[in-house]
């Protein structure tokens, strides 16, 4: 039973240390506590199940960041399919929406992320949402800095066109 006890200790340790960060990130990207809890649970289940294949060099936090980003982007895409994105309830606690943003811009962000191409959406989260430098994002995405720049440029062009298209449709 020692193996399972060790695994449980590791889970508790990781959860206490990294859990709030995973939760905060999921809550911001998904917009409510129910989905953030769901995401945190799924991220840790996936992480604990896949820990043998995890690259120790990258660091646990980098690895969890990556799983959380991918999971949340998938949820946003699923929501898009269910046409629920516009109907979601926004948190009024103020903590889910960072300091410099308003509710409308966060809603717009989620909608764009739900429609964008997967790699472009990831780069947008790392650079535009998290505020990472291109080098930092490149490390998290395991691509070159140049690729980050190209993906970001494509995302921005696409997002501008998408916003314009919407304005014209109003």
């Amino acid at each position: 039973m020692r193996d399972s006890n060790n695994a449980d200790e590791q889970l508790s340790g990781w959860f206490e240390k990294y859990g709030p960060s995973v939760y905060r990130r999921a809550r911001y990207l998904l917009g409510n506590d129910d989905d953030a809890r769901e995401a945190t649970q799924e991220v840790f289940i996936r992480a604990m199940k896949a820990q043998r294949t995890f690259e120790a060099r990258a660091g646990v936090h980098t690895w969890l960041y990556r799983i959380t980003t991918n999971y949340c982007l998938n949820v946003l895409r699923d929501r898009k399919r269910r046409k629920e994105l516009w109907e979601e309830n926004m948190s009024d606690s103020g903590q889910a929406v960072p300091f410099t943003q308003n509710v409308e811009s966060v809603m717009l962000l989620r909608r764009l992320l739900s429609e964008a191409e997967a790699q472009q959406a990831r780069v947008a989260v790392y650079v535009l949402v998290d505020g990472m430098s291109h080098s930092e994002a490149a490390r998290y995405m395991k691509v070159s800095r140049r690729t980050v720049g190209n993906l970001l440029e494509r995302f921005k062009k696409w997002a501008e066109a998408r916003i314009l298209e919407e304005k014209e449709g109003e």
Binding site: Y28, F99, T100, L128, V129, G131, M132, S133, Y140, A159
Partner: peptide, 17 residues
């Protein structure tokens, strides 16, 4: 777009950092 999405000022550390 940068201003719209960024959660912090450009010279602030990223969330991950």
């Amino acid at each position: 777009l940068d201003k719209l999405f960024s959660t912090a000022r450009s010279d602030c550390p990223s969330d991950a950092l």
